[in-house]
Nucleic acid binder design. Structure first.
Length: 763
RNA sequence: GCGCCGAUGGCUCAAUGGAUAGAGCACCUGACUUCGGAUCAGGCGGUUGGGGGUUCGAGUCCCUCUCGGCGCGCCA
């Protein structure tokens, strides 16, 4: 409603200005900072003062006069009839308008009713993109691809990954809210050194070190723990599906790897011969394995050759690496699923390699002359892309980026260019056909409600993964070829992301380059206090210097094992939430444990997601336990509590037969004089779409978070001052109830659909 | 060296170039025989890092300086 009025008002101001002989470039109707000033405002008279050589107030007054005349003839159903007649010129020349509160509130309530039942799961059925998003009706906007999470599948997710996934997921939710079809991709780097390092750990790390890492996660390996025993256990667990656990707090493979990985990197530092193992495994992983090679077979091969550092079968190593990566991916899915974060497709780097994406991209780059083979100099023998002509890269000492090494292998950036081309639908074979992956179902999943946890294993929706054989393609499945692509990656990757964008541009796709958006955000680090707490609770010593500990924050490091694992944080949050619930429970019968657990989970997710959303994206998030565990003040639970309270009011009303209906409230509102405080909340609710639009335009979800907190604050205040149940009379009750109804629906929609924060029944 | 980002009350953070810079935490004083106190009311606390400039208007844009962080690989 609000958007339509603003559009019409801007048009009317434009008409008035035109009649005054003024061609205003762009008319912006905004909202005054404080409601007493009005609901809508036009500040355009101020900049016009100079060109017109008239006082800004005089300009505003003339516009006001002409507007009044024009509006006098409008039909009653015109959007501008929703404004109070007349307008005020205030301050240096602001033109302020007021809405007819009662009528506007009635309209908001009726629109709210029309939009129900809620559109659930906008953005394609079951994760299957529909015909590249180009089908559908004429007004169907092009498909947007959002890539986020992208965790190396070699260890558990940490809080840095949480920031990525929460920002990415919030982006997805906001896009869908505004009607964009969205495809969510989680890129899996299953062939990189990080996976190789963990595999080195299983195969070549000195046995006692391996056993030390495995012991914590997999107790009961005895009686005679050994490397081959570990491998056998891995195979057994893979077969039984117990490398991954749905139970929060149970040690998964990713937790085992979290411990194993730093031991491997330490071994590299201590033992020079380890480097050869690393290279060998990496090479094996990149080469892949025949599809008929089973994990059992591979592990049997590997275990039988377990006599110290000896070269084993490369295909078997690759097969093990694939299993390690896959299990880690499944762990990550479960972790993110707990926060209500789901995906449509998992593009795998191994498939990019084996499907020849780089080969095709290389041909395209050569054909357009975007890259050249360096004959001599320090980059001799490499294919490089010159960045010298691009203003983005002006002033760089070395403006050439190597895409193909002299060894003939492709760099990370090279692969990324190929992948980005595919995402944009620009990776095409000579004949013009899309150069595409194959696909196969990875796992089924379901979720309850917009913010409920994502449960894997069964359900109506299917998460797909890529395959290297393009013939492998379930019917109706198509991914990639987006009209716009957001890559959610932390700011440290800005340089390669710019190179990718530049490559798209020089390949002759300037619009596509503009639609390749790097959603950059600052890293998550740890406060020294948080690091100390980690050392204490885990009995570790990260070996940090006094100088390190004096810094404002410390970078996490998977290699050194410094970090807060996502699941561990969630466990702590849930425990704290349970304690808070118990504290507030007072006397009376104890709650059922499942009930407490469900509420605590919702509160934990709310606290976590809100903390990630409320902070501006280009500010380092220095993680602190006390801050993360706060449930009062500017926190997720504060917002959840407002939604729970609003729902409670309606429960009580219903119990006394006073619930009314949207229609009775709308009718009452239309006839009522709406007080300032009630109006302030109603008007704020009406601004939600505008705020989502701004958040999306600036990629700043702090705007949405702030808006939500404003709503909750206004509500809590009203809640204290104006009882609905004990209202003086029915008219007053209906009006308050109408505003609370609007708030209740709005806050629930924002929390569950946009911020992914579940609203519990009770807290 | 070049580039990007940050600096806002004691602390953590907000604020499409607009009107009186907002929250929370901490501290102090208050509020339930009425819809749940994870709440609310009030108080304390600011020359928005320094200096120039543009503008009718600057926390926001430009220049410069200081401090802090991060990038600038034939790593991924």
């Amino acid at each position: 409603m609000l958007e339509m009025i603003r559009t019409e008002l801007a048009a009317a101001i434009g008409t008035a200005l035109a009649a005054m002989g003024v061609e205003a470039p762009q008319i912006v109707v905004d909202v005054p900072p404080r409601r007493p000033l009005g609901d809508l405002a036009w500040a355009g008279a101020l900049p016009l003062a100079k060109t017109l050589r008239r006082a800004p107030r005089a300009i505003a007054e003339e516009v006001a006069r002409r507007l009044d005349e024009a509006r006098a003839t409008l039909p009653a159903e015109h959007p501008l009839a929703m404004l109070e007649p007349g307008c005020a010129v205030e301050g240096p020349g602001f033109l302020n308008f007021r809405l007819r509160r009662g009528a506007a509130l009635a309209r908001l309530l009726r629109e709210m009713r029309e939009s129900h039942p809620r559109r659930d799961e906008r953005g394609g059925p079951g994760g299957v993109a529909e015909a590249g998003g180009s089908g559908g009706g004429p007004k169907c906007p092009p498909k947007v691809i959002v890539e986020h999470t992208n965790i190396n599948p070699n260890k558990a997710a940490h809080i840095g990954h949480l920031r990525n996934a929460v920002l990415g997921d919030t982006l997805v939710r906001c896009l869908r809210y505004l009607g964009h079809p969205v495809e969510v991709q989680d890129y899996i780097d299953d062939t990189g050194v990080q996976v190789a390092d963990v595999v080195v750990g299983f195969l070549f790390l000195p046995e006692e070190r391996l056993l030390a890492a495995v012991g914590a996660a997999w107790p009961g390996l005895a009686p005679a723990p050994s490397r081959s025993g570990v491998l056998a256990a891995f195979a057994a667990r893979a077969a039984a599906g117990t490398l991954v656990s749905d139970t929060l707090g149970e040690a998964d493979l990713d937790d085992l790897c979290w411990d194993l990985y730093p031991r491997v990197t330490r071994w590299y530092e201590e033992d020079e011969s380890a480097a050869a193992r690393r290279a060998e495994v990496l090479h094996a992983v990149e080469a892949g394995f025949p599809s008929e090679l089973s994990l059992e077979q591979a592990i049997e091969d590997l275990a039988s050759s377990d006599h110290g550092p000896r070269t084993t079968d490369h295909a078997s190593i690759a097969r093990l690496a694939a299993a390690v990566a896959e299990a880690n991916v499944r762990c990550h899915l479960v972790t993110m699923g707990r926060l209500g974060i789901a995906y449509d497709v998992l593009p795998h780097e191994s498939d990019i390699l084996h499907r020849g994406f780089w080969q095709r991209a290389f041909e395209l780059l050569q054909a357009t002359g975007a890259i050249r083979l360096e004959e001599d100099g320090k980059n001799a023998g490499c294919w490089v892309m010159s960045l010298a002509d691009s203003p983005e890269f002006a002033g760089m000492a070395d403006a050439d980026k190597i895409l193909l090494r002299s060894s003939g292998t492709v760099t990370y950036t090279g692969k990324d260019i190929a992948y980005q081309l595919w995402k944009l639908g620009l990776l095409r074979d000579a004949g013009g056909a899309l150069h595409d992956f194959g696909y196969r179902a990875f796992v089924r999943f379901a979720r309850d409600g917009a913010a409920g946890p994502v449960r894997y294993g069964q359900g109506a929706r299917v998460l797909y993964r890529t395959a290297s054989d393009p013939a492998e393609r379930p019917t109706g499945v198509a991914f990639g070829a987006g009209g716009r692509v957001y890559n959610v990656i932390d700011v440290r990757q800005s340089y390669p992301q710019k190179v990718v964008k530049e490559a798209i541009r020089v390949l002759g796709h300037p619009e596509a380059a503009e639609n390749s958006i790097h959603f950059a955000y600052e890293m998550v680090a740890l406060t020294p206090k948080a690091v100390r707490r980690l050392e204490e609770t885990h009995g570790l010593d990260f070996g940090l210097t006094a100088e390190d500990m004096a810094k404002p924050f410390l970078e996490m490091s998977g290699r050194r094992g410094i970090g807060v694992a996502a699941d561990a944080l969630l466990v702590t949050l849930i425990r704290e939430a349970e304690r808070a619930i118990a504290d507030r429970q007072g006397e009376g019968p104890a709650l059922a444990p499942e009930l407490v657990a469900a509420r605590a989970r919702a509160i934990a997710v709310g606290a976590l997601r809100y903390q990630m959303a409320r902070q501006g994206r280009n500010r380092v998030l220095a993680f602190d336990f006390d801050e993360a565990l706060a449930f009062e003040g500017d926190t997720g639970p504060y917002l959840q509590y407002s939604a729970v309270r609003a729902a409670k009011v309606f429960e009580k009303l219903a119990a006394q037969g006073l619930a009314g209906s949207t229609e009775t409230d709308a009718g009452a509102a239309a006839a009522a004089a709406v007080s300032d405080d009630l109006w302030e909340l109603a008007f704020a609710c009406a601004r939600t779409r505008e705020v989502v639009g701004k958040a999306l335009a600036s990629l700043e979800f702090s705007l949405l978070a702030g808006h939500t907190r404003d709503l909750a604050q206004l509500f809590h205040k009203l809640y204290h001052e104006h009882s609905v149940l004990h209202a003086e009379d029915e008219a007053v009750r209906a009006l308050r109830r109408g505003v609370f109804r609007l708030f209740g629906e709005t806050i629930r929609e924002i929390l569950e659909e946009l911020l992914g924060i579940p609203v519990p029944q009770e807290m």
